[in-house]
Design a binder for these strands. Structure first.
Lengths: 150, 150
DNA sequence: CGAAACTAGTTCGCGGCACGAACTTACGCA
DNA sequence: TGCGTAAGTTCGTGCCGCGAACTAGTTTCG
C-alpha cells in the first residue's frame, strides 16, 4: 500500500511535538531526555548494561557515557554483577527513584494534553491505536522490560 | 479529564520509535536529524532566521550553529535580506534541494511502515487522528509554513 | 590444562547539538 | 541625534553518541 504523501511526514512532526513537550517536562524535573529514558528503565529494578543498550537504542560507548553522566548526578549507580565480573548492572539511587516516579506521574498526567483538541471519543480511539502500534499489553512505566524498537 | 496512566508514556515511546526510524532514513541520505528538519523547511523557499527559530524550536545561537554546519555541507546558504541588513535568509542549494526532496519522498513512502501491523481501516483512522492533532489542513512537505509547536 | 576466541564494558577521538550571556551591527522612533 | 530595540553571531559550556581500540574476564577447544 502506498503511503499518502503526508502521513509519514505528519508522523515525524507528531513525534517532534511529543518530544518537545517531553523535553519541557523533563527540564522541570532537572533531567535531560536521555537521562530520563535511562532512569525510567532502571527506577523499578536494576538492569544490566547489555539489556539497557538495545532498550535505549544505544551503542556501548554511548550507554557508558550516559550512565557516567547520570551517575555523576547521583541518580543511578553501577553495581558489579555477581555471575560475571565483566558485567555490571545499573540501579537507581533513592533520589533517582523519587525523581523517576515523579516524572512518570507528570508525563502520565500532562503529556496527553497535546491531544486536548480531540473529542473524547477520538482521543480514546487514538489511545487504542497508539497502544496497538507499540504493542503494549499493559501500560507500564516508561516501557520497562518492553520490546526494543525494531 | 485525567489521563490513563499509560497514554502519556505510550506517546513518548511512540515518538521514540518514529524518531529512530526517521534517524535511519536521514542517515541513508547522509543527513542528521537536525539538518534534515532545517533542509525540509527551506528546500522549497528561503526562510528568514527569525522565522526558522520558532519553527525548529531553537534559540538563536543554536539555529546559527545548525545553519553553519549545514552550510558547511553545501546544502544551504545564507543570503542578506534587502529590507534589513541585520537579517539574513536561508535558502537551499541545488544539492540541498535534491537531497531534501529525496528524503521527503523516502519518509512519505517508508516511515508509515512502522504502523504496518494495523489493519487498513485502523491505519486510515490513525492518519486522520494524527492530522487532526497536528492541525494539518493539507499535507505539505516537512510542515513548511506550518504553525510552530505550542 | 592452557591457549585462542569471544564477550562486557570503558576510554579515546571526534563531531553534532543547543543554551545563556555577551557582543556587533542595524533599524525605528521620539 | 541619541536611545532603545532587534537580528544574528561568538564564546563558553555541557550533553550526546559512534567507531576504533583497549582491558579484563569468560568460554571453548585441542
Amino acid at each position: 500500500m502506498t503511503a499518502t504523501p503526508g502521513f509519514g511526514n505528519n508522523l515525524v512532526y507528531l513525534s517532534v511535538l511529543i518530544q518537545r513537550r517531553f523535553t519541557q517536562l523533563c527540564a522541570e524535573h532537572d533531567l535531560t531526555n536521555a537521562q530520563a529514558h535511562l532512569l525510567c528503565l532502571v527506577k523499578d529494578r536494576p538492569h544490566g548494561m547489555s539489556e539497557l543498550g538495545p532498550l535505549l537504542g544505544l551503542a556501548k560507548p554511548g550507554l557508558s557515557g550516559l550512565v557516567d553522566r547520570t551517575e555523576r548526578r547521583g541518580l543511578v549507580q553501577r553495581c558489579s554483577a555477581e555471575h560475571d565480573r565483566r558485567a555490571c548492572t545499573v540501579s537507581s539511587t533513592p533520589l533517582g527513584k523519587e525523581i523517576g516516579d515523579a516524572l512518570y506521574a507528570d508525563v502520565a498526567a500532562r503529556l496527553p494534553g497535546i491531544v486536548d483538541q480531540l473529542s473524547p471519543a477520538d482521543r480514546r480511539l487514538l489511545e487504542e491505536l497508539v497502544a496497538a502500534v507499540i504493542g503494549a499489553t499493559a501500560s507500564d512505566p516508561c516501557r520497562a522490560d518492553g520490546d526494543p524498537a525494531p
